[in-house]
Design a protein around this nucleic acid. Structure first.
Length: 272
DNA sequence: AAATGGCCCAACCGCTGCAGC
DNA sequence: CGCTGCAGCGGTTGGGCCATT
């Protein structure tokens, strides 16, 4: 036993990530992928343990993360999957494109569980259930305060679904078919968030030292280069439905469920 | 206007499973 | 076949922010 700690603790930073750290991590992953999380921080010049880097990437910096409120559809799916899978958050997250296990776990504990316990689909009192706009603001606030040069996208759409990662570039690319996360987008909002993000970025960082990522960053080719693994196509998954005003959340959800079903991931589930 | 309480979420901790040797 | 190291997972916590008093 006595397994060695995951990382040498001395001299390593902990706590909230700075914009510079985020940028370093993203830049490094962009160039080299993440074949070895343990070695990554050293190679990337980060004073973090590999675990921390991995978590930050997976839960926050990944380009395909969807942020914002969970839709009723998503929540219903979570409830259903939780009933079947239990606390296997990663398995549940696998059925919710763009959502992380951590996020789902948080939502479960802070919203859904309480509602189920209450028995009537109401969240308690006023504050519970921050207004969507507020939630978005929170995300932005956090992001900008210690945060990610990638602001969590402030462009929270009315559907409550937004798309966070990679301020400029993600916004620019968000309509890309590669981007599994996006389900609805309002260009004007994206534009607004883009402007905000740039401002935050510019004010917080030396652009010379950390030049803004160009729009091509999040393109599929780059993402593949980043070592994120196979593209959806390579994994046997088709791209999500193209965005359109007629595309509904249900359709999107159904699409992904069908894809996963076809891929065999859910063969043993009676979900559908 | 200030104090307090509660909510939310990012991040950490510790354990498990798996692959390589 | 056991050991070791790594990635991944789930539980928990700390701190910021907002609503209420």
């Amino acid at each position: 036993m006595g397994r060695a700690p995951c990382c040498e603790k001395e001299g390593l930073r902990r706590g909230a990530w700075s914009a510079e750290e985020d940028q370093r991590l993203v830049a490094y992953v962009r160039q080299n992928g993440h074949p070895n999380w343990r070695a990554l921080p050293r190679q990337a010049g980060l004073l973090r343990c590999g675990k921390s880097c991995r978590l930050r990437w997976i839960n926050y910096l990944r380009p395909d993360i969807k942020r914002g409120n969970f839709t009723p559809d998503e929540e219903a799916l979570i409830v259903r999957l939780h009933r079947e899978l239990g606390n296997r958050w990663s398995a549940i997250a696998a059925q919710l494109p763009g959502r992380t296990d951590n996020e789902i776990k948080n939502v479960w504990h802070t919203h859904i569980k309480k509602r189920l316990e209450d028995g009537h689909g109401e969240e308690k009192k006023a504050r519970k259930g921050k207004p969507a706009a507020k939630k978005a603001a929170d995300a932005v606030g956090r992001s900008s305060e210690h945060g990610p040069f990638l602001t969590a996208s402030p462009g929270l759409s009315s559907s409550g679904v937004t798309f966070s990662a990679a301020a400029d570039s993600a916004a620019a690319v968000s309509s890309s078919a590669d981007n599994a996360a996006t389900t609805s987008h309002h260009p004007q909002q994206v534009g607004a968030s883009k402007a905000e993000s740039s401002t935050e970025l510019d004010s917080g960082l030396s652009s010379a030292e950390f030049p803004p990522l160009d729009d091509s960053f999040w393109s599929s080719a780059d993402v593949v280069d980043m070592g994120l693994g196979a593209t959806d196509e390579e994994l046997g998954l088709a791209c999500p439905p193209p965005l359109s005003s007629s595309s509904t959340r249900d359709e999107d959800m159904e699409f992904w469920l069908n894809m996963l079903l076809e891929a065999g991931d859910m063969r043993d589930l009676s979900v559908l």
